[in-house]
Amino acid sequence: MELILALAIGVLGGSGVWLLMRPRTFQLIIGLSLLSYAVNLFIFSMGRFPVGKPPILEPGMRGDPAVFADPLPQSLVLTAIVIGFATTALFLVVMLAARGLTGGDHVDGQAGRDR
């Protein structure tokens, strides 16, 4: 399970970084999205992976940390996802504006330079 998660983070992160270096705005935004997935998984994994354990106390139970999943990384991931959605949407609008103003989808605004 650890291996699968580590591979997932690695593949997502690697693809994201590669796409981030590409010259088209579409590749850029997909790269940023993939990277943010990798980061979200990474935050989640910092909660130490207790599989099948609840993050909240049952009524009447003693608070033994070994029995529970850490709820904090989960809430951090949730916040990060929401903020990530908002900024991605905002970035998309800017990209559309750049497309309209420069007539191309190159990140430096040089329309059709290498077509």
């Binding site: 705005t25 940023l32 990277l35 980061v39 990474f42 935050i43 990384p73 800017v94 990209m95 420069t102």
Partner: peptide, 30 residues
């Protein structure tokens, strides 16, 4: 045009930096 071009770079760099922020914070928490 000038603002949108510069803004595109500015936003992309800051989004990437925010991801670094998250990685750092979660490692410290871990």
């Amino acid at each position: 045009v000038a603002r949108v071009k510069a803004g595109l770079h500015y936003i992309a760099i800051n989004l990437a930096a925010s991801l670094l922020f998250l990685i750092g914070v979660s490692m410290i928490y871990g």
